[in-house]
Design a protein around this nucleic acid. Structure first.
Length: 490
RNA sequence: CGGGGUGUAGCGUAGCCCGGUAUCGCGCCACAUUUGGGAUGUGGAGGUCGUAGGUUCGAAUCCUGCCACCCCGACCA
């Protein structure tokens, strides 16, 4: 392992890449745009999954699994949907290889599929085609399904976790008897995402709605949570869509309501992906490496013994053997690193790089004094604390760290929401201060497009808790009733 | 799809201009000494130089083609 990583102030993008690689979260695979998520990175994702999965079930959803392959014809059934995804679909055309007689394996042209299969970029189409058979009556509704899956989007430019060709996610697909219920579901799941981002990932988010331009292909309304990264760029961390009756109509999913009349079903879909890993990394980490919120850290506490000779190690290990169950009793995941192959300094640096929230170092001096050295990752502070009551102290410290990194991120975020009242001011802020810029917009796609072309800033969302105020659009001077949040985004 | 870059041991690299069978560091293995912020010494193992062809007595090096990946943009979660 090499020493140090590029400073984030020097080159943010390189800093990010190095953290992902050096903290052992993931690595590039031999396939362009695809990554291998390594055990340490995957264990963070598993923690995210576990929490989210629990929340989904708590809100009445069940998991199911739908196929990876989608018949091409399904895509053309919803016009906006196909427009949105057509240019980034991987297509399966053959089902067999053969030996060409010269030692090469080639595609067997005789094994051409009647109908090409699309590797799912998202599953609305195959799921709604399936729902057609599941829904006949209002009694079958609501239908609340989630699936954990991989999807493929053939993006031109990829970045580890933030945008990979194949990525892992969950996608909820629900069916309802009324528009109101579907909207309620859409908003409820947005709240679930926001709660997860803030209270687990410690990443503050703005809940809002997308403009028509930024809306999901096939949705009537797209809600989102937007987070701010340390370089002042926004990251869309999750989306929840109200799909209206678009997919029900495309796939002919009707039900008989209480009055005995036929109607199309109302839908929502919502998802978060391994992109959340990117958000987690970028939101908190520093030049020493990853900083993980305790609630999602695979290892919350690491214990490093410092000893001269086996005898001292024995004593320390005996103490640690008693300490471990006490810590675990508080639900703390703890690792005792008594490897003799690495010295303490190496281990300190390694666990900092990996973002372990608390490190306990115990040496002969501590054993004599009845203390341990506690180092917290978020502030880099070190404390000498008594062994007596240590488990409880650590437990409380973990809660403090969780709170601290959230507050730190919140402070940064709030300091980076700035109001702009003219186009000049807007451009100036984008170049200097960055972050979210709250500005009046005349509500037209033309204005949005021009601002994007001229400044690279997009409307991240129209915040749900927006206050109404009269103003004029920064570009056109036309009247506006509220400010929207602009930012450069990932 | 444009621009830039890289491909040599597990990783990072030197060598390429000027052709003679590959340098250094990290890591790995063994042993010893070490251990409160990225240890030290000694010995050792490890290479189709991305790939196909060409020139040459001889190619990591020169020529041609191909492939792949990374970074920066445009597009997108």
């Amino acid at each position: 392992m090499s020493k140090g990583i590029t400073s984030k102030s020097e080159d943010y993008s390189q800093w990010y890449n190095e953290i992902v690689i050096k903290a052992d979260l993931a690595e590039h695979s031999s396939v362009k745009g695809c990554m291998v998520i390594k055990p340490y990175g995957y264990s963070i994702w598993e923690k995210m999954q576990a929490v989210l999965d629990h929340k989904f079930k708590e809100t009445g959803h069940s998991n199911a699994y739908f196929p990876l392959f989608i018949p091409k014809s399904y895509f053309s059934k919803e016009a906006a949907h196909v427009d949105g995804f057509a240019t980034e679909c991987a297509v399966v055309t053959h089902y067999r290889l053969k030996n060409d007689g010269q030692g090469n394996i080639i595609v067997d042209e005789e094994a051409k599929l009647e109908e090409e299969l699309i590797v799912r970029p998202t599953s609305e189409t195959i799921i709604w085609n399936t729902y057609k058979g599941w829904i006949q009556s209002y009694r079958d509704l609501p239908l609340l399904i989630n699936q954990w899956a991989n999807v493929v989007r053939w993006e031109m430019r990829t970045r580890l976790f933030l945008r990979t060709t194949e990525f892992l996610w969950q996608e909820g697909h629900t069916a309802h008897a009324t528009a109101e219920e579907a909207i309620e579901e859409t908003e409820k799941m947005l709240d679930v995402y926001a709660d997860f981002a803030e209270n687990w990932m410690a990443v503050p988010v703005v809940k809002g709605r997308k403009t028509e331009t930024e809306r999901f292909a096939g949705a009537l309304d797209t809600y989102c949570i937007e987070a701010l990264m340390q370089d002042g760029k926004a990251l869309q961390a999750g989306t929840s869509h109200f799909l209206g009756q678009n997919f029900a109509k495309a796939f002919d999913v009707k039900f008989t309501n209480k009055e005995g009349k036929q109607d199309y079903v109302w839908a929502s879909s919502w998802g978060v992906s391994t992109r959340l890993m990117g958000a987690l990394i970028m939101a908190h980490s520093d030049d020493s490496g990853l900083v993980l919120p305790p609630k999602l850290a695979p290892i919350q506490v690491v214990i490093v013994p410092i000893h001269k000779g086996d005898e001292e190690l024995q004593k320390i290990s005996t103490f640690v053997d008693e300490l471990l169950p006490r810590l675990r009793g508080f639900g703390i995941s703890v690792k005792y690193d008594d490897r003799d192959s690495q010295r303490p300094g190496f281990k300190f640096a390694e666990y900092e790089l990996k973002g372990v929230p608390i490190r306990l170092a115990i040496g002969a001096r501590d054993m004599e004094n009845g203390t341990v050295e506690l180092a917290r990752r978020d502030t880099k502070e070190k404390f000498t604390v008594p062994q007596e009551g240590l488990a409880e102290y650590v437990f409380q410290m973990l809660a403090q760290i969780q709170e601290n990194i959230f507050n730190r991120a919140l402070k940064f975020r709030d300091e980076h929401i700035t109001e702009a009242n003219s186009y000049e001011e807007f451009k100036e802020l984008l170049d200097t201060k960055t972050g979210f810029i709250a500005a009046h917009w005349d509500g037209t796609a033309e204005t949005e497009k021009r601002i994007k072309e001229e400044t690279k800033a997009t409307i991240r969302c129209i915040p749900l808790d927006n206050k109404l105020e009269d103003g004029v659009c920064i570009l056109t001077g036309n009247p506006s009733k509220q400010r929207v949040l602009f930012a450069k985004a990932y």
